[in-house]
């Protein structure tokens, strides 16, 4: 039983690797589906912004409120903007944005492509002379790869604003002082690696959502399974990629 599960895991990993290989093969082939790409940018990027913004604002606010008592205990209350900004920019905002997107976008792509598969819409595309992989998969993976970093940068800014409000609930920190401390603290090694890793988060969310949707079977039950497993696997991949990113930045001396 355990060996069978391990075999399935290896098989699926191989299938995902092949699917990713096919993505890169199809990526540079014409025809380029610009209309579908822009349509997906609207749905994946613009439509996800409110959820990401609210989450980022709350995370900034909560992290600041929770961190304050400990810093007060050590007489380091003035370090609050510095500490909050580093933890938000380096880790919390990119990872929370990626997890929110894994839930919203990953499941959406998995369910959409899954239902297209079971209702023969993907076959219909194929017989009408359109490459469904290029039209459905390539456009969505490019969109998630480009849109999630943008959402993460916006989430960085909004969470810092939440942090500013959090810092002013129990104390008084002026607007200028807060932002001066934030920008004095943040360095190249804090911002750039955290943005770079979000491209990988976006790619992983897109490719897993598309893989699960594109390989759906078992009818409508399969659509639910595809959506669910897309969220689970892409969320897990976000954490694994985050761990790798931390190790790499550590090796490069950027921590």
């Amino acid at each position: 039983m355990a060996s069978e599960k391990f075999q399935n895991f290896i098989d699926e990993t191989g299938d995902i690797a092949r699917f990713t290989g096919r993505f890169f093969k199809e990526l540079f082939k014409p025809r380029f589906e610009f209309n579908e790409f822009f349509r997906q940018c609207f749905f994946i990027g613009y439509k996800s912004f409110p959820l990401v913004a609210i989450t980022a604002f709350i995370m900034g606010l909560v992290i600041t409120i929770q961190s304050r008592p400990t810093l007060v205990e050590f007489g380091a209350e003035s370090w609050l903007p510095r500490m909050v900004s580093v933890s938000l920019i380096r880790e919390i905002a990119p990872v929370i944005t990626a997890l929110i997107c894994a839930g919203k976008i990953g499941s959406g792509i998995g369910a959409e492509l899954g239902s297209m598969k079971v209702t023969e819409q993907i076959d219909a595309m194929e017989v009408s002379g359109t490459n469904p992989f290029k039209f459905l998969v390539v456009t969505r993976v490019i969109t998630t790869t480009l849109m999630i970093p943008i959402l993460a940068v916006l989430a960085d800014a909004i969470s810092l604003y939440g942090g500013f409000l959090g810092a002013n609930i129990h104390g008084v920190v002026s607007w200028d002082l807060f932002w001066n401390q934030v920008f004095d603290t943040l360095a190249f090694g804090d911002v750039v690696p955290s943005i770079i890793k979000t491209y990988f988060f976006g790619f992983a969310i897109g490719i897993i959502g598309c893989y699960k949707g594109f390989n759906t079977n078992k009818g409508t039950e399969g659509v639910g399974i595809a959506a669910n497993s897309a969220v689970v696997i892409s969320s897990l991949l976000v954490f694994i990629l985050d761990l790798l990113a931390v190790q790499i930045t550590d090796i490069l001396g950027l921590n």
Binding site: S115, M116, E120, D123, V127, S128
Partner: peptide, 28 residues
């Protein structure tokens, strides 16, 4: 495939597209 039409059992109309867009799709 341009010379061979296929009518699917489930119709396979694209849910996210209007009737016009569905019909325009094979002309792409």
């Amino acid at each position: 495939r341009v010379k061979v039409g296929f009518l699917f059992q489930s119709n396979a109309l694209y849910d996210s597209m209007t009737v016009r867009e569905n019909l325009e799709f094979p002309l792409r």
